[in-house]
Design a protein around this nucleic acid. Structure first.
Lengths: 345, 345
DNA sequence: TTTAGCACTCGCTACCCTTGAGTGCCAACA
DNA sequence: TGTTGGCACTCAAGGGTAGCGAGTGCTAAA
């Protein structure tokens, strides 16, 4: 176990490094009022912390920099989670920051990503609430031109999805009408998860009884439902990544920017942790592109209406305390706002 | 007027510089088979071209680099437009590149942006056909939850726009129905441009006769129509901008990336030229961020159905011949594809 | 008009030197 | 035993300089 003084020194090193970006030396540390000892003592303690792998030198005679293990220790043992309660950001309410006029839930979510990236100066990713647990409250089918139909899904979460698809000429319009009626009878009230299951198993048999020409179309309907799982991503502040990648070679920065536009990659990145707030640092993310980046994610929950994710991508040397505080505020306030405007059951 | 030899030297300098990125010296030029003279002769010609402002040195004793005026001259007088006919890209048909299955027009347009950026390794921007000249063929209004309605606009261009908005509780549902009927009677068949005009002028009076509680809602309808003018942008290859900005300071690169996400800025950027194919080089774009960038734009036309724009953002030292050829191919092939799949009247 | 030759320019690279921040270690001290 | 001052050592960063090489302009001869 570390002594009080060692903890204090580690914390100071991390605070100074994350705020100024320069390796921290013993001389700099004794300027801190909390540290009473002489620089020689501090040096002794530092070489001990280095032996433990919590800090490291950039070269033989440089100041110290926190190691991955050091950050990990800091987050797990120094940043006590109970400090999260007295949160200085709680005061600047999310609601005041983002205004109040939103036609659809997605706008509000997008806007909270914008605020999150503005407040951190990093890249913010916000995932709308998972829809597979939300219930279908309505299904509309709007004929457009010849052969094109828009399907609209309405859920109890206030989300509205729409998709346009083509209908083979072989499908008669009466068959289509029958199908829609059937869908409304059979699917409304179930969760999207269940709906997809029914589409794959029960519906084909049922439909056979009513109509004959609909085989090809059923798969397309299924796609619409699966589609609702995507389009949950809202990103803001992508260009802030450039501040963090000045040492990286251009090809990698390009890959990183491209990754931010690829929902598949983002999903696997964000789905890594199940905790309410998680911090993954550099190599822990197991992705070469994130060697010098950290990902802080927070889950928010709309009670029975599924979960969403808030995330910030910043440098490994980010101010974790501030970021965690901020995400903790958002994960409480965003669901409140969403419930207030859209989920008035 | 320039001599044959001078033209040849200028062309060679531009070709070599755009393909290798290095300033071109007299020694390098005499290696070209087309140039028979000695290096001393070439040097004489080069200092003449420099006096004319067509090429310049990066420093006193360096090779030459084309100037803005040089590129301009090259594009206007050396790259003869009639050469565009025998186009080596005509063979690799756009259609083969992008496949054939598209549910909506926008997908096809997005895909052509992807292909364009892949083939150039630059950033491609494609604007869907201008909708203000397209005719409204149908207007659907789908009630969702309490107080929310989805409006769907269908046009003869195959584009489908939808928008969700809230309806004040003060509006009765019968009034809403009357309004929709009125809209379908009065607005279908007109161009969107005319529709907006009618919404502002004729409709308020007409509506007064049928319903009383609809004042607030009319403005929202108008917004939906105006909305269709946006969402025309499809961009691909944004990360390729990083290859072109290695000399720029990070702040500017960030601004540039942000600009690419801002439809307002893009509109003003693209709307600068009325020609079928236009090249604007560096300073000609009158935007500090584009000092070392060029914008090549091509207009494509869907006969009566409005115009769209194809654009490539690359370095001032881009291979203009290749880029122009490519855009010229696309501006002919994209409308063919669009007409083939969506505008089968 | 063209060409060969030559002196000149200047960016680039390598190298050296100095500076300064920071370290580890040791001996003295509480 | 823990703490402190002192000292020699290390190394990155920055500045200065010399040599190289690609390229030029100019001149004189073909």
């Amino acid at each position: 176990m570390l002594t009080e003084r060692q903890l204090c020194i580690l914390e100071k090193i991390i605070n100074l490094y994350t705020s100024h970006g320069q390796p921290v030396g013993s001389k700099r540390l004794v300027e801190e009022p909390e540290i009473q000892s002489s620089s020689a003592t501090v040096r002794n303690e530092m070489s001990l912390l280095e032996e433990l792998g919590l800090i490291e030198k950039t070269h033989l005679s440089s100041g110290r920099v926190p190691s991955l293990k050091g950050y990990r220790f800091y987050i797990d043992h120094i940043l006590h989670p109970n400090e999260l309660k007295k949160d200085q950001f709680q005061s600047r309410s999310l609601e005041r920051e983002i205004g109040q006029n939103f036609e659809v839930m997605d706008e509000l979510i997008q806007q909270s990503a914008v605020v999150l990236s503005k407040l951190t100066n990093f890249t913010a990713i916000v995932l709308g609430p998972e829809t597979s647990q939300s219930r279908l409250t309505g299904l509309r089918l709007v004929p457009l031109n010849d052969g094109q139909v828009m399907v609209i899904l309405i859920t109890d979460q206030g989300s509205v999805e729409n998709m346009i698809f083509s209908i083979p000429r072989s499908v008669s319009s009466t068959d289509l009408e029958k199908m829609v009626k059937l869908f409304n009878d059979q699917l409304v009230g179930f969760t999207l998860f269940e709906v997809v299951y029914k589409l794959q198993n029960e519906m084909p048999l049922l439909i056979k009884q009513y109509a004959t020409t609909t085989d090809q179309i059923l798969g397309q309907f299924e796609q619409v439902f699966l589609q609702t799982q995507n389009n949950r991503f809202h990103i803001s502040g992508k260009s802030n990544l450039l501040d963090l990648t000045s040492n990286m070679d251009i090809q990698k920065v390009k890959s990183l920017l491209d990754l931010m536009e690829n929902q598949m990659s983002l999903t696997s990145l964000l789905s890594g942790s199940k905790e309410s707030i998680s911090v993954r640092i550099g190599e822990e993310l197991d992705n070469e592109l994130f060697a010098n980046l950290s990902l802080v994610t927070a889950r928010y929950s709309l009670s029975d209406h599924g979960e969403g994710i808030l995330a910030v991508v910043g440098p490994t040397s980010m101010p974790y305390d501030k970021t965690i505080h901020l995400l903790n505020t958002f994960r409480h306030e965003l669901p409140e706002l969403l419930l207030k405007y859209y989920l008035t059951e």
